[in-house]
Amino acid sequence: MRYRLLPQRHPETAAKRRGKRAVACAGVLLASVTALVSAGTFDPSPATAAAPATRPDGPSEVPASVQPNSRPQVTAAVLSMDGRDRRTAVYGDDTPYDTASIIKVDILATLLLQAQDAGRTLDAHERALAEAMIKHSDNDSANALWREIGLAPGLEAANKRLGLTSTKGGAGFLWGLTQTTASDQIRLLGAVFGTGSVSNTGTGPLNEASRAYITSLMAHIESDQSWGVSSAAGSGWALKNGWLQRSATGLWDINSIGQVTVNGHRYLVAVLSAGNASMNDGISLVERTARTAVASAAGR
């Protein structure tokens, strides 16, 4: 079985909602994940990096024809927020993927951390940009805030404090080509939603007000973007999705990260995928994977 546990590190501290949300059932065996591997849903091979897209996020202007016989890759990571086991369960190879728009959560976390360091809160203009960037996945707003935080160097400096170890910022303004892993996204989510002592004491790089602000925006995503890890939720979710068609291959990166609540229990979930033949195919893959991974983690 391609299943393993990673130690949880406390931080230093678009496609309408499709179908009914499935409620993941606790007690689903890890064999469910193995079945996905056998069926080709979980690909154990690392994702192959492609040439930069015309735009850092969203469809390329003149995408190449989709390569035939392509097989997508996907990795999921799940952390129970309420259980005793504080290790992240990783399904598939924890290899780097393009972030596409999920990087926008990291951009906002960096902005807030920098503002905290300066002893200030975000001004009205910054808050308007942040709201558009997270709730509507607006790229112009992301460009502006990416510049403000100091591009990749600013992101990476903040990530060291947030506990991320495997995320490398995209060159120049290609923030959508930032490389990250599923386990690193769980670390980021942990810094936002809090795990262990963080949620209890308010300690950690991001203060309570900063974490509450990011959480609120992620819980009010535009309705046509509320797919992804939310398919695994029962009673509540907060998320950010990313989608990117690569101009070199015509294939899609589809990602989703966030917190879901199932049967009263909270889980942090990150599902990253690459090589999807279409955006809809990628969304279906991410949602199936999220449901199976959360159900498997609940049954541990």
Rank of each mutant, 00 (worst) to 15 (best):
Ala76Pro: 08
Asp184Ser: 10
Val260Lys: 04
Asp140Thr: 10
Asn280Tyr: 04
Val90Lys: 09
Arg266Met: 02
Ser278Asn: 06
Ser197Gln: 10
Ser235Leu: 05
Ser166His: 15
His265Val: 05
Ala270Gly: 01
Leu145Tyr: 00
Ala26Lys: 02
Pro11Gln: 02
Thr261Met: 07
Ala171Ser: 11
Asn200Lys: 15
Ser183Met: 04
Ala35Lys: 14
Ala212Met: 08
Tyr91Leu: 14
Glu61Val: 08
Leu36Asn: 02
Ser166Phe: 08
Asn69Trp: 13
Val23Trp: 08
Gly119Glu: 08
Gln185Cys: 10
Ala293Thr: 00
Leu189Arg: 02
Trp146Gly: 02
Leu162Gln: 07
Ala124Gln: 14
Glu156Met: 12
Tyr3Arg: 10
Pro52Thr: 05
Asp43Ser: 09
Gln114Pro: 10
Tyr97Glu: 02
Ile283Tyr: 13
Ser216Phe: 09
Leu113Ser: 11
Pro72Lys: 05
Ala248Ser: 15
Ala232Leu: 03
Ala50Cys: 06
Arg127Met: 13
Arg21Met: 00
Ala47Arg: 11
Thr95Phe: 08
Ala51Gly: 15
Gly176Asp: 02
Asn263Trp: 05
Ala297His: 13
Ala31Thr: 15
Ile134Ser: 00
Leu112Pro: 14
Arg246Glu: 14
Trp175Asp: 05
Ser32Gln: 14
Leu113Phe: 12
Ala182Arg: 00
Glu222Thr: 03
Gly234Pro: 13
Ser65His: 13
Leu29Pro: 15
Gly19Cys: 08
Val198Gln: 13
Glu12His: 07
Ala130Gly: 01
Leu162Pro: 07
Pro63Arg: 06
Met81Ser: 03
Thr95Met: 09
Ala182Glu: 12
Trp252Cys: 03
Gly176Phe: 04
Asn241Cys: 04
Asp85Ser: 05
Trp227Arg: 09
Asn207Arg: 06
Ala14Tyr: 13
Leu189Asp: 01
Asp224Tyr: 10
Ala212Pro: 13
Asn143Phe: 15
Trp243Gln: 13
Leu113Gly: 01
Arg161Phe: 07
Leu285His: 07
Thr41Cys: 09
Ser296Arg: 04
Val62Leu: 10
Lys160Gly: 12
Ile283Phe: 13
Cys25Gln: 08
Val90Ser: 09
Arg127Phe: 03
Leu151His: 14
Arg2Ala: 11
Ala132Cys: 03
Asp106Ile: 00
Arg4Asn: 03
Asn263Ala: 09
Ala248Trp: 09
Asp184Tyr: 11
Thr75Met: 03
Ala233Ile: 06
Thr195Ala: 03
Leu164His: 01
Thr110Ala: 10
Glu131Leu: 09
Asp85Cys: 06
Leu112Ile: 11
Asp253Asn: 14
Gly92Gln: 03
Asp123Met: 04
Leu217Tyr: 11
Gly27Val: 05
Cys25Met: 02
Ser235Tyr: 08
Ser32Phe: 02
Ala49Arg: 14
Thr34Arg: 15
Leu151Gln: 12
Ala24Glu: 05
Ile283Gln: 14
Ser296Thr: 15
Lys135Pro: 00
Ile214Lys: 00
Ile221Thr: 06
Pro72Asn: 07
Leu188Ile: 06
Val90Asn: 11
Gly250Ile: 06
Ala109Ser: 13
Met279Val: 01
Ser60Thr: 15
Pro44Met: 06
Leu164Gln: 06
Thr178Ser: 12
Val260Gly: 10
Arg4Val: 04
Ser60Asn: 06
Pro63Glu: 02
Leu239Gln: 11
Ser101Lys: 08
Leu5Lys: 12
Thr13Tyr: 14
Leu188Cys: 07
Arg266Asn: 13
Ala277Lys: 13
Pro205Lys: 15
Arg84Lys: 11
